[in-house]
């Protein structure tokens, strides 16, 4: 039966989408904090936001890497 495969799809979708959204949202949030004028934000916040965006991109690329048969042999 293919219920297992269906579950796989559900799980993969959830994990992939949540990963991307969490990382990107964190990036957005930290960018917003870094951009605040009144409260001086620590300098590292900006860099952490870059790291978040970067990780998000890597997560997407990794997902594609998993899917494309050319890479997985």
């Amino acid at each position: 039966m293919k219920w297992l495969e269906l579950l796989t799809v559900a799980g993969a979708t959830l994990v992939a989408a949540v990963t991307v959204v969490v990382l990107y949202s964190l990036g957005v949030r930290l960018t917003a904090i870094a951009g605040d004028r009144q409260v001086a934000a620590p300098g590292w916040v900006k860099y952490v936001s870059y790291v978040c965006f970067g990780l998000c991109g890597i997560a997407v690329l990794f997902g594609l890497y998993l899917i494309i048969p050319y890479f997985s042999g």
Partner: peptide
């Protein structure tokens, strides 16, 4: 969009 893309890509793969 991220959920659409993940759902379709995962399904295509299987």
């Amino acid at each position: 969009e991220s959920s659409t893309a993940s759902a379709i890509l995962a399904s295509s793969h299987l």
